[in-house]
Simulated scan of single mutants.
Amino acid sequence: MVGAALLHTFWPALVGITVVVIGVTTARAVFWSIPTRFLTGAAAAGGFAFINSVGTFGGFAGPLMMGWLKDLTGSFSAGILGMVAMLLISTLLTGSLKYFVKDE
């Protein structure tokens, strides 16, 4: 994704964004299984509702952030780099769950 933001050429950008979409799509299946690892019953349903709420908020905030950064800088590169930052933060937060959630 960083390459797509910095290279400004079609084919490397397309390949980079395609790889990112494949990674994000494959991570969804694993992400949806997280609440059932440490929540049961109504709490698990609440965990699923929270995931859905975060996804819905992301559907609003992502395009808003992209448009705001494009208006601010005059380039889509800043928006793409902003998305890279959000993906990196979410990856680190998800990876940190192994330190806070104990398996039974």
Rank of each mutant, 00 (worst) to 15 (best):
M1D: 12
M1S: 12
M1P: 11
V2E: 02
L6A: 11
L7I: 15
L7C: 14
L7R: 06
F10L: 14
P12A: 04
P12Q: 01
A13E: 05
G16C: 15
V19E: 06
V20F: 12
V20H: 07
V21G: 03
I22E: 10
G23N: 08
V24N: 03
V24P: 03
T26M: 15
A27V: 02
V30P: 00
W32M: 06
W32I: 12
I34Q: 05
T36A: 15
T36Q: 14
R37K: 14
R37L: 06
F38L: 02
L39Y: 10
G41Y: 07
A44N: 08
A44C: 09
A44F: 07
G46A: 10
G46D: 12
F48R: 07
F48Y: 13
F50E: 09
N52A: 15
S53H: 07
S53T: 14
V54H: 01
V54F: 03
T56C: 06
F57T: 10
G59L: 01
F60K: 02
A61E: 01
G62Q: 04
G62L: 05
G62E: 03
G62M: 08
G62V: 04
L64R: 11
M65E: 01
M65Y: 07
M66D: 04
M66V: 15
G67Y: 04
G67E: 06
W68D: 00
W68K: 06
K70Y: 13
K70G: 07
L72M: 11
G74F: 14
G74A: 09
S75R: 13
S75E: 13
F76T: 09
A78C: 06
A78W: 08
G79M: 04
M83Q: 09
M83Y: 11
V84K: 04
V84M: 13
M86G: 00
M86P: 00
L87R: 05
L88G: 11
I89C: 05
S90M: 10
T91P: 00
T91S: 08
T91I: 06
L92P: 00
T94Q: 00
G95W: 04
S96P: 02
S96Y: 07
S96F: 08
L97F: 05
L97M: 14
K98G: 11
K98C: 02
Y99T: 05
F100P: 00
F100R: 03
F100S: 02
F100M: 00
V101L: 00
V101Y: 00
K102R: 14
K102I: 06
D103S: 14
E104H: 08
